[in-house]
């Protein structure tokens, strides 16, 4: 831990470097009404290099959100509709024989882009999910004997439809863990919905302007890494994650039988990275407990395994996380 960091200088730097956040937010708000939390989560994922799993009923602007983000950053964007007959090669690419050249040439798949929207990821079989999640983790793809680095920034946003379970392949726990955030999208409010109608009745639908380049995002990511996180905040993060593993030690005896497994060390890392990114979005050079609490639900909700007892009692992971946040002492 760098103890000689100058917070004042860092704060000023972050104030300077994070000015684009307001511009991106503005551009996205031009197109997407409401969904402030979704926009914030997209930015957290983008700045901390974490992938996002979106869950929400159809029609909540999931695709539009990522499309708008890609447009405003001037980045390449691909949407892949996951279906039961999709093959890994359809996603990653394959080698095809060129009669002209009389040799096998590489045909890259749609994953070679900056932003990937993996729509309805749970409709594809495990081997396709696995191929995507491996690419997410390694940020490189091997086709034949050649390994290709994926271009940065590389952000995968996968969507899951929670209402249709028939004919789906739910993501295994180990693979869900690779998504930094799982964002649950709610319906807009009445006023927001009224605005959505008005916007869609206009002759021309608003579009986002290109306000950033992918290189700017990479630069911002470096700055996010410099955001100061005190040891007290690190201890707070560890306490939260440990409370999911050993609720009894945190006076949460009622959840002992409800949790089958708690957050992994990857959860601690993700929580710290997401909290830093959130502090950056809030244009601060240091992390405060509010930042941890703001991202905790999205980082932890898919990392807690619920027991049959919890499911029988209709206890959700969100409920457990809320209780943990209300019990673990804030530094």
């Amino acid at each position: 831990m760098d103890q000689t960091v100058d917070i004042r200088e860092l704060n000023e730097r972050i104030q300077r470097e994070s000015s684009f956040i307001d511009i991106i937010s503005m551009e996205m708000n031009k197109v997407i009404v409401g969904q402030k939390h979704l926009v914030e989560s997209l930015l957290v994922g983008l700045l901390s290099g974490g992938h996002i799993l979106l869950e929400g009923v159809p029609g909540l602007a999931k695709t539009l959100a990522i499309n708008t983000l890609a447009t405003s950053i001037d980045a390449k964007y691909a949407r892949i509709q996951f279906t039961p007959d999709l093959l890994p090669a359809d996603l990653l690419g394959t080698m095809i024989y060129s009669q002209k050249k009389e040799e096998f040439i590489v045909k890259k798949g749609p994953i070679f882009t900056n932003f990937v929207l993996a729509d309805e990821i749970n409709r594809a079989p495990a081997k396709v999910q696995s191929a995507l999640l491996e690419a997410m983790q390694e940020r490189q793809i091997t086709i034949g004997e050649t390994t290709y680095k994926l271009q940065e920034p590389f952000l995968v946003m996968a969507t899951q439809n929670p209402i249709e379970q028939e004919g789906t392949y739910p993501l295994p726990e180990a693979q869900v863990d690779r998504f930094m955030l799982k964002v649950v999208i709610k319906y807009p409010s009445k006023d927001e919905e009224k605005l959505i109608i008005q916007q869609n009745l206009l002759k021309t639908f608003p579009t986002a302007s290109k306000v950033m380049r992918p290189e700017d995002i990479l630069k911002a990511r470096d700055v996010v890494k410099d955001v100061y996180m005190d040891e007290k905040i690190q201890k707070y993060i560890v306490d939260i994650v440990f409370a999911t593993r050993d609720p009894k030690a945190y006076k949460l005896d009622k959840y002992v039988d409800m949790i089958s497994y708690g957050g992994s060390p990857r959860a601690s890392i993700s929580l710290a990275q997401a909290a830093k990114a959130y502090a950056f979005i809030k244009r601060r050079g240091y992390v405060i407990p509010e930042d941890v609490r703001a991202v905790c639900m999205d980082v932890m909700r898919h990392r807690i395994g619920l027991s049959y007892e919890a499911e029988a009692n209709n206890i959700t992971s969100e409920e457990i996380i809320a209780e943990i946040l209300n019990t673990v002492e804030v530094p």
């Binding site: 960091v5 917070i7 704060n11 100061y228 005190d230 007290k232 905040i233 050079g285 240091y286 992390v287 405060i288 407990p289 530094p331």
Partner: peptide, 9 residues
């Protein structure tokens, strides 16, 4: 206190 605790103020 927050500034001192979390931002090395």
């Amino acid at each position: 206190a927050d500034l001192v605790k979390f931002a090395k103020y």
